[in-house]
Design a binder for these strands. Structure first.
Lengths: 138, 138
DNA sequence: GTGTTTGCAAAGTGTTTGCAATTTA
DNA sequence: TAAATTGCAAACACTTTGCAAACAC
C-alpha cells in the first residue's frame, strides 16, 4: 500500500534521465506518470496541461515528448499516419487500435506469441517488433 | 511462361473494380501493377508518373491511391507518422521497415506465426493485424 | 447529354524550427 | 554566468478540398 507522490516521482524521473527539472517538464511528467498507463498525442497533453492551469506552449510539449521518448521515459507508437502517439508503458507489449475512435490500448507483452520473425541483415539491428490489432466499429 | 500485358491488365483491374478507365488511372495502374509488389507514397508515384511523361496532378494521385485502396486494389500501410505508404501486395502478409532508409519490405504471411490475439469486443470487428519489424542501420 | 473525374490553387493538419528572452544549475 | 530551455510565430511536409473545365460512357 504505497502512497503515490506524483511530484517527487516526476522529479526523480527527470533526474534519473538526466533532464533539467523545469516547471514545464515537471508538470508534464506529473500528468503523464500519474500511476496508470497512458497514450497521448501532443495535442491531448497540451490540452490537459492547459486544463490543469499549467502554462506551457505546444512547441514545448512536442519537445518534451520527444526528449522523454529519447531517454526512454516514453515510447512513440505509430498507428496513424498523421499523428504521433506516445505511450507511458515502456515495457514490451503490443497494441489494439480502434480506427474509428482513434483509441489506443495496450496488449500485454506475454499475451501474444510471435514466431517466424525474419533474420536481420548484417549492418542492421532490430529496433523493435510492433503488433497492431486494428479494429473498427460495426 | 505468360506474357505480361500491363495495359489490358490495368484496364481489367479498373473494370473489375468498377472504376472508370481514365487516362490518369490507367497510367497509374500500369505503374503500380507492373508484375512485382511495390510500396509507394503519393509523392513517389507522382514522380514516377512525371518521369514516364504521364501528365497527372499530385491531387489526382492522392485521389487515385485512396480509391484503389477502397476497392481493394491496394492496401494502405501505416509505418511512419507523416507519410502514407500503399502496398500493391494485397494478400495477407506483414512488413519489415527500415527506420533510417524508410524502406518497406514484405514478409510472407505464412512466415510469421501469431498467437494470443485478444478477443474483439461486441460492436467491433477486426480490421486487420499488422506485424511491423522495425530495423535500423548500425 | 449527364454524371464523373481532373487539376489547380488554396486551405488544412500536425509538426518542426529560428531566435530572443527566460530559467536552471 | 554559462548553458539549457522556453515560447512565439513562421515555416514545413504531407494531405485534402472547392470548384470550374474536361472527360467517359
Amino acid at each position: 500500500m504505497e502512497k503515490i507522490r506524483p511530484y517527487s516521482q516526476a522529479l526523480d524521473r527527470l533526474r534519473n534521465a538526466g533532464l533539467r527539472s523545469t516547471r514545464q517538464r515537471l508538470a508534464l511528467a506529473k500528468l503523464l506518470f500519474d500511476g496508470q498507463n497512458r497514450h497521448v498525442t501532443a495535442e491531448i497533453l497540451h490540452g490537459e496541461a492547459l486544463e490543469a492551469s499549467v502554462r506551457v506552449s505546444l512547441a514545448t510539449v512536442y519537445n518534451t515528448l520527444h526528449q522523454f521518448n529519447e531517454v526512454g521515459l516514453l515510447r512513440e507508437i505509430v498507428v496513424d499516419s498523421g499523428r504521433s502517439y506516445f505511450d507511458t508503458n515502456i515495457s514490451e507489449h503490443h497494441h489494439i487500435y480502434n480506427e474509428d475512435t482513434r483509441e489506443l490500448m495496450d496488449i500485454d507483452g506475454d499475451q501474444i506469441d510471435l514466431a517466424g520473425l525474419p533474420a536481420i541483415e548484417a549492418g542492421q539491428e532490430l529496433s523493435r517488433v510492433d503488433v497492431i490489432v486494428r479494429i473498427k466499429n460495426i
